[in-house]
Amino acid sequence: MNGGRGGPGGGVEVWSEHSVPGPSATNLADLLERILDKGIVIAGDIKVDLLDIELLTIRLRLFIASVDTAKKAGIDWWETDPAMSSRAARSELLEENRRLRERVELLEAVEDGSDDPDGEDGLPPLRLRTRKREYPRR
């Protein structure tokens, strides 16, 4: 309505450095748990999924205000973080497993007829049975 709203694509500066005189001393985690989790919630026109934001924030470890919410969404990094849980050991195995599986897939792919047995970045050269010339050309 009024104020310095530019035209379309006019590059309005929304949050200037000086636009926030708020008490910056306020602990961010305290603040976020209050304004994301508390306050009155009524249906808005523009639905911003605060859950998404929370999950991201959680992943970034800014805070964990809504562990239950996160759990419902299947986010449970704290259970798989080596620093936080003995379950982590298991997850490290899973991770190693995954890496091995990828490696196997790669090997199989190479065997399927690549001319580049030297593999991709960082991987040692792959010396395989090179029967590739026997495959019929597609």
Binding site: G22, P23, L28, L32, I35, L50, D52, I53, L60, L62
Partner: peptide, 16 residues
């Protein structure tokens, strides 16, 4: 709001 810096700025502005 998924950007931590923007989230903080927005949160503090709202709070102010």
């Amino acid at each position: 709001l998924s950007d931590p810096g923007e989230l903080e700025r927005c949160a503090r502005a709202h709070h102010a």
